[in-house]
Simulated scan of single mutants.
Amino acid sequence: MEQNRPLLEIKNLKKYFTIESGGFFNRKSGNLTAVDDVTFHINKGETFGLVGESGCGKSTLGRSIVRLYQPTGGNIIYDGEDITNISQHEMMKYRKRLQMIFQDPYASLNSRLTVSEIVGEGIETHNLYTGQEKLDKIYELLTTVGLKKEHASRYPHEFSGGQRQRIGIARALAVEPELVVCDEPISALDVSIQAQVVNMLEDLQDNMGLTYLFIAHDLSMVKHISDRIGVMYLGKMMEITESNELYRKPLHPYTQALLSSIPIPDPKKNKENKRIILQGDVKSPIDPPEGCRFASRCRYVMDICREVTPELREVEPSHFVACHLVK
């Protein structure tokens, strides 16, 4: 791999879902625009945080990157190779390098399989280990994620939510990937468990040289784990910059509103904190009109915002914003 070349490049990625009107002919009635013209990159060894409100397209973007969804347009460049439209057979060699941790630890594990079978499935598919070597690898993975050897023979229903997520993480790591898409891996867990899982992910990254796309809506947690952060709204990328810079100097009005909603532990400071309350209606992602997606809720909206879609521009070094207001 060339020096300074990103491990993952996403170029103008689009993912639309066709909406059927129903009836005898099942005619198409429109497109739901889940991801629309998104561009960013992730460097090897870094964590790229992806934040935004529920329904903004974060998870769809993550699933499109690992090709669980076939993109409607744009390009996915992994380690210099365009994998956007390669066949499922060709994609197999990239499945080993690209893995995903799912949001719901209850729905993402097959209840009919033992932990050993769940974690070992990828090992078997990619012919990495067999026999006792495979079993030893499974035991090693379980220990790595904070579980025990004897857990291998149990079923998912015998574990708590936090333990199930650890099993999901062990499954993702089983094929020794380079990049892991973490799709809100802590949102379904108790607060006391969330920090444990995030700390474990950071330790695994240091020990295994992993690269993360960390999708979440918990802004304080994203700041803790991410090197750079991208902010999405209704399928569009609104702002991208380094983590500390985003929290120090948010430029997009939507980012400013998001950050103002973060609770501050100090009751006095929290009371003094001026929260930005968004007014107006959220635009429908079904065949959205031209212009800025955030225009209907922006307190600084101008005529051009409703007519012209702003491009994601570098307004300061390594700080990209899609807003007509920011010069």
Score class of each variant (00 low, 15 high):
I229N: 02
F214K: 05
L113Y: 13
D206N: 14
H157V: 12
V197A: 09
L246C: 06
H126Q: 01
L312I: 12
F102I: 10
Y155I: 08
I240H: 04
I77F: 06
I42R: 12
C323A: 00
D303T: 15
A195H: 01
R299I: 04
I276L: 08
L61H: 01
M208K: 14
Q194G: 07
K148F: 08
N43D: 15
L213G: 02
I19V: 15
S261Y: 10
L312C: 10
H319K: 09
M302N: 08
I304L: 02
S192A: 10
R154K: 15
L128Y: 04
L135C: 01
G235E: 00
T114F: 05
T143N: 14
P250F: 11
M221E: 08
R166G: 09
Q3I: 14
C56G: 00
I262V: 15
E314K: 01
Q70S: 14
K327E: 15
I19Q: 11
L8G: 02
D266F: 07
G45W: 02
H252I: 09
K148T: 14
G30N: 00
P310Q: 03
S226W: 12
C305H: 05
K58H: 03
L204Q: 00
K268L: 10
L325N: 03
L147N: 03
I123T: 08
A170Q: 05
P263H: 06
L179D: 10
I193Q: 05
I10M: 04
L173V: 09
I277K: 12
R27T: 12
G74H: 01
A34F: 13
C305P: 09
G74T: 02
K44A: 15
R67H: 13
L7C: 12
R228M: 07
H324W: 11
L173H: 06
E117T: 11
K96F: 06
M92Q: 14
R164V: 07
S64M: 13
L113K: 15
G62Y: 00
L258S: 04
G146F: 01
E124F: 12
Y129Q: 06
G291S: 00
E316S: 12
T47M: 02
K223N: 14
D203W: 08
L68F: 14
D82E: 12
S59W: 10
V180A: 03
E46R: 10
K148I: 07
